[in-house]
Structure formats: C-alpha cells, structure tokens
C-alpha cells in the first residue's frame, strides 16, 4: 500500500477504517508518521491509485481528514532486508 491518509483526531481515523473496510478496501492503521503530519496518533494506509473513490466514500460518511499522501514507510523494507 503506497498511500496514507492522516487525520486530526483518532475519532476520524477509526471511522475511516470502519467505512473503508466495510466497502471492501484494503486499509491498515499505522502510527502516524511525524514527518508527514504532527496531528494524529494513527494514520491509514491505502492504495494511492484508489484515492478518488476512497476520498468520496469518506466525504459521504462525514469523515474528516488532515491530508492524503503518497507514502510508503521505510519500515516496509525491514522484512525484505532481513
């Protein structure tokens, strides 16, 4: 997953996860990368190519986001390197 949504509040992060999972999208909550946004404890990984559909689903459910980023944490390489 190469996309990341950051949030102002964990309330919205949790709702985003529930909304997108129930629509069948692959998403995963991770600790919010502080280099992208200082705002939230958790952020949501998703497929960046799906961003238009994903954002439309969130808007429809009144889920507020901080930002959308093309982002892959460096820790993805961790298991590969080992």
């Amino acid at each position: 997953m190469d996309g990341l949504i950051s949030f102002f509040a964990s309330h919205h992060a949790m709702r985003a996860e529930a909304v997108l999972k129930s629509s069948g999208w692959a998403v995963r909550l991770i600790p919010g990368p502080k280099d992208l946004s200082p705002n939230c404890g958790v952020a949501l990984r998703f497929e960046y190519a799906q961003r238009e559909n994903v954002l439309a689903a969130l808007v429809a459910k009144n889920v507020r986001i901080d930002g959308v980023h093309c982002y892959r944490p460096r820790s993805d390489d961790w298991s590969v390197r080992r």
């Binding site: 309330h11 709702r15 991770i30 600790p31 404890g41 958790v42």
Partner: peptide, 17 residues
C-alpha cells in the same frame, strides 16, 4: 486510545469509537 499507533492503542480507540 488515540495516543499511539500500536495494536493495543488502536484496539482501545476502536472500543471508544
């Protein structure tokens, strides 16, 4: 809840939300 991204924090945040 809402204080970290690890599984225990996320589980607690899910309970609250």
């Amino acid at each position: 809840p809402g204080r970290a991204g690890h599984r225990m924090s996320v589980a607690a945040a899910r309970i609250v939300e």
